[in-house]
Design a protein around this nucleic acid. Structure first.
Lengths: 208, 208
DNA sequence: GTCTATAGGGAGATAGAC
DNA sequence: GTCTATCTCCCTATAGAC
């Protein structure tokens, strides 16, 4: 108790407005990685926008690798939590189609919404050297597992294609990053349109 | 005549096996850009795999920018020519659906086939600094214009969505680069499956 | 056409004062 | 926690011999 209070006081006096400095750095890094790619963004760029000097970054993150891994993993966590929250909020008797549409909309919203973490993840994953990509694979696989559960009911005729279907749907949704202008596009309308096309396509395939 | 012969002789004596050196450099550059991204590939990397020293590259290409622009533009030319050739080979009375399926298959084949130019283009376009991206826009727009012509017949109910549809289809096809294993996947089967899903989705949307 | 040698700049990262 | 100063490395690109 007394010990805890002491620590608290020290923290207050030594760093009043800097409590969330690591968070601020992560935000800046995600924004820049998303906009300009992994290799094109230097630690100096991030530090400058964060209002500090380059070496100060290394007090909070051991290396550029550490920083980019943190951004990448949060990018998947954010979209996974948004998706599960949206699905948990559905009424108990929702149809498979309704569930899938909800999932697609949640994914698109995370991708084009306020947070830059998910979009940064999608944009730069393919640019990362192999070891950094591997550091993000556990999160990615957990997220794909959720989608496998959602798509399995509409893929019963050919279970071996399930993983390909998961990759195709996520890939098609992610591809919107390359062409959708978030300012001039109504996100909800886009989500309905896209999920409609994908869902009809998958269902038609089932019936054929 | 006599002049032409003289030039020919000089070329033969001064560079016997190097007639296609620029082509070889482009091939190497496309392969490496595709595999590792734009910024991660240095001129030294390209020179080494081409079997020459770095400064020799600058005899054939004025700069890294020049080299990457050449790779990018060829990437679109290759897929455009493959697509138009496939469509021109169709019988005169082919249906819209048949034409679209053929186009999607041609695009996927160019993307996953022997040439690395188109896949390099798709992979690194988003990584390029703005001026380099702009240098590829003319080719890209010409290619999208072809797709606009193909998709217009199945988009008559809402012409304002045509450009979005074009971007969506090309984006969905390009996204296969991120997850398809060309060794373990039957490309023709994949093409039929994907084009089926996309086509059914678009057509179902038309009817709704 | 290709080479050796090198200029000039920017990257990631560390040392140590405050 | 943040700073100044600096190390080391590798990048693109050029000069000039062969």
């Amino acid at each position: 108790m007394a010990r805890a209070k002491l620590v608290e006081k020290e923290t207050q006096t030594s760093a009043p407005p800097n409590v969330a400095r690591p968070e601020q750095i992560l935000d800046v890094a995600a924004r820049q990685f998303r906009a300009r790619g992994y290799a094109a963004v230097s630690m100096r760029d991030i530090a400058t926008e964060a209002g500090i000097r380059t070496p100060s970054l290394y007090y909070h993150f051991a290396s550029k690798d550490d920083l980019v891994i943190a951004v990448m993993n949060r990018g998947i966590v954010v979209v996974r939590e948004a998706l599960t929250a949206a699905i948990d909020a559905l009424p108990p008797g929702a149809s498979d189609a309704h569930i899938l549409t909800t999932a697609m909309r949640a994914h698109l919203r995370a991708l084009h919404g306020l947070s830059d973490y998910t979009s940064a993840n999608v944009r730069i994953f393919g640019q990362l050297p192999e070891p950094l990509r591997r550091a993000n694979l556990a999160e990615r696989r957990a997220y794909q597992a959720i989608w496998s559960g959602l798509l399995a009911p509409v893929c019963t005729h050919e279970p071996s294609l399930l993983q390909a279907r998961v990759a195709f749907v996520i890939g098609a949704l992610n591809a919107t990053l390359e062409w959708v202008d978030p300012v001039r596009t109504d996100l909800e309308q886009l989500a309905d349109c896209l999920s409609g096309v994908l869902l009809h396509g998958l269902l038609a395939k089932v019936r054929t």
